[in-house]
């Protein structure tokens, strides 16, 4: 009986949480933007959410590309198929690794930072004080952060895939001796704009939406104590990572299975 009670309570709190998250999202992003005041705020957030995530994206992208080339080469060379190294790396990065790994890294780097920042603003009454100054914190604080992440992640994903391919080129061509012309031309032949590149962008847009939604909601809804903020930050990273992986499977099934 007690377990049933617990289950019911958990379900109710989950549903009401989801409801609050939807209300937050709708009231933060559905309004006519104020270009004069909003633009500087958005640019500031694009810097702290996007530009500051560049380093981790570039470094991880390079290493993942390099490792892919190394592993791919050792397998492909056994079949004399090292000419396919280029498309193999490019397709893995564009279709799966780029959007997913960039999304995971973004959740860890930017998502957690946003949750903690908004949570602390709540704990130090900065959000309340905005409200009392007749300034809507949803528009002033939440909306620019949400949009900045939504714009940044697809761009970061593109950069991730690009430096990954360059990293693979360094290992495959410069180190292991695959012909550079073959590497690029076979890649060009095999990678389809609509099927691969466009789908990569779609995936990253979906992941950006999910990560930012979770990050701003968790920050805004957290219990305003140090424990509450730490719990919110953790659950931002955990929930958005799990959702990225789960959604990736669904999107792949929709996009690539005929």
């Amino acid at each position: 009986m007690q377990q049933l009670h617990y289950l019911g309570k958990q379900t109710l709190s989950m549903i009401s949480g989801l409801g609050r998250a939807v209300i937050l999202l709708v009231s933060a992003i559905v309004h006519v933007p104020n270009v004069r005041k909003g633009t500087p705020l958005l640019i500031q957030q694009l810097y702290s959410v996007g530009v500051l995530s560049l380093l981790i994206i570039i470094v991880s992208g390079t290493f993942i590309g390099m490792v892919l080339a190394l592993q791919g080469y050792t397998i492909l060379v056994g079949y004399g198929a090292e000419a396919s190294l280029g498309p193999m790396v490019a397709l893995s990065l564009l279709r799966e690794l780029g959007p997913v790994v960039a999304g995971l890294l973004f959740a860890g780097r930017a998502g957690s930072a946003l949750t903690a920042e908004i949570g602390l603003m709540k704990a130090t009454e900065q959000l309340s004080s905005l409200e009392m100054m007749a300034i809507d914190p949803l528009r002033r604080i939440i909306a620019p952060r949400f949009w900045a992440g939504f714009i940044s992640l697809p761009l970061l994903t593109a950069i991730f895939s690009m430096v990954g391919i360059l990293g693979a080129h360094v290992v495959g061509v410069n180190w292991l001796g695959v012909d550079s012309g073959t590497f690029w031309s076979v890649m060009q032949e095999q990678v389809d704009f609509e099927k691969d590149i466009l789908n990569s962008v779609i995936k990253s847009i979906v992941f950006a939406f999910v990560v930012m939604w979770i990050a701003v909601y968790k920050g805004y809804d957290c219990e305003p104590t140090s424990e509450g903020i730490s719990r919110a930050t953790t659950s931002t990273v955990v929930q958005s990572s799990l959702l990225i992986l789960c959604l990736d499977f669904i999107l792949t099934a929709l996009m690539f299975v005929k």
């Binding site: 130090t124 009454e125 900065q126 004080s129 409200e131 100054m133």
Partner: peptide, 15 residues
């Protein structure tokens, strides 16, 4: 609310 303001216990300055 434009006609009222509140002094919060913590000050609530924007950091």
């Amino acid at each position: 609310r434009k006609q009222m303001s509140m002094l919060f216990q913590s000050g609530a300055l924007f950091t």
